[in-house]
Amino acid sequence: MEDVYRLREVSFNRVLTIPALNIPGGSLFLVSGPSGSGKTTFLKLLNNLIACDRGEILYRGRDILSIDPVKLRRKAVMVSHSPYIFPGTVYDNILLVFNFNRKEIVSQEKIEKMLSHFGLDGFLSRQTNKLSGGEKQRLGLVRALLLESETILLDEPTAALDEENSRTVYNYLNNWVQEGGRSVIMVSHDVSLAGRYTDGTMILDKGQIVELRQEGYARERTAVD
């Protein structure tokens, strides 16, 4: 499958330097490393939330500078480390992100099914100011996944979750990539658990790539327990 992202000689503000990187489409790619190593900066560059000082980033073969920035973000949606949850109900939040994307909202049945899968059963009309940290993180993930974008960029999607909920998230993402042919690029500290689900891993330290493993692309994708 065509590379979802290609980076060449990319650098940002002495925070991050990527000499060359290809991320194949239809894969789950993990970015890890200590705090301050440039992981979030990396995702923001891919989402075009910030611009690199030099180098080029290609999204599906096209320089991201030649793509309308808002359209690019609708193709490669990003969820931050602590997703901002809008005031109102859970449903209001989901409706709002569909409005952002100028898309017709999916059926209530589909929303409830997704909420239920992430342990938010019956939360549709719940006020978001009553949600716990973990519930907010899962809502942030659910509202982005429901958009069914080509690519999703996740910054520490399981940071506020216990191991069981983390497995649920990783399994869902694994299936999402496998069945939908979509791409997931995910930042996580938890290489031991997250690494079991991913096709490739990049370890950053002080803004440099210290390790790049992409052997997973050769393996037959299977669900992991």
Binding site: L49, V70, R73, V77, M78, S80, Y84, F100, N101, R143
Partner: peptide, 17 residues
Amino acid sequence: RARIEESLMLGASPRAA
């Protein structure tokens, strides 16, 4: 800022964000 940035990440135009 956090709200506006999150909205942009999710595909909002600057005006919508």
